[in-house]
């Protein structure tokens, strides 16, 4: 197509940064993630302020099922690794491998979401709800915001994989995969903090 769209097989070593549009996209995405840090920081601050306000309901250590949470953590951290392998495949211009690694990333993301939904349903049956206490409000808002980010990431990466079958790997599609993987790492990083602040600190009475 246009002159700035390279044909498959002749991509430069870092195709995501080869065009001005690509560099703009990567820079803008880092800035976006900087803002997201403040967003989650505010939610964490709110949660820490309210985490003991259970309003007569179950406390964190009574509720949390650490095996499920540990499994979810393992799955999400593994998905970060698979997205790195996807980007490495992209840099070697191996479209098929890249699609496969990102597809695994999506599947792991879906598994994480399944565990999170199971967990929320369990808590709901124990009387832990958005409306039951300030702890409940803060918990579901923080963890739910993260879950929403995972869901968005799953849909986004799936859409990118789908279009890569038609468009292949070009100077237009490569930056998209690159920023999606940045996003995925960020979501994982937030989960590391949630695992620590919400779950581990919640288990310590």
């Amino acid at each position: 197509m246009a002159t700035h769209h390279a044909v498959n097989g002749t991509l430069p070593p870092e195709p995501e940064k080869a065009t001005l549009e690509g560099r703009n996209k990567v820079l803008g995405f880092w800035l976006f993630l900087g803002g997201e840090c403040v967003l989650f920081g505010s939610l964490f601050a709110t949660f820490i302020a309210l985490r003991d306000q259970v309003n007569g309901g179950p406390t964190a250590s009574e509720l949390f099922q650490m095996p499920v949470v540990a499994l979810a953590t393992f799955i999400l951290l593994t998905s970060s690794l698979t997205s790195v392998l996807g980007i490495l495949a992209m840099h070697r211009n191996k479209v098929g491998q890249m699609q496969a690694w990102f597809a695994i990333t999506v599947l792991l993301g879906l598994a994480f979401l399944g565990l999170e939904i199971y967990e929320f349903v369990e808590y709901y049956h124990h009387g832990h709800m958005l409306t039951s206490s300030a702890f409940g409000s803060a918990f579901y808002t923080l963890v739910g915001f993260h879950g929403g980010h995972v869901l968005f990431g799953v849909l986004w990466i799936a859409l990118l994989i789908a279009q890569s079958f038609k468009k292949g790997l070009t100077l237009v599609t490569a930056p998209k995969f690159y920023v999606a993987s940045l996003y995925w790492h960020f979501v994982d990083l937030v989960w590391v903090f949630i695992f620590t602040v919400v779950y581990l600190m919640g288990m310590v009475e």
């Binding site: 309210l50 306000q53 958005l130 409000s137």
Partner: peptide
Amino acid sequence: FGANFFDVNAGGN
């Protein structure tokens, strides 16, 4: 949605 962030009765602040 009936959350309790600012409802002091339910532990809000």
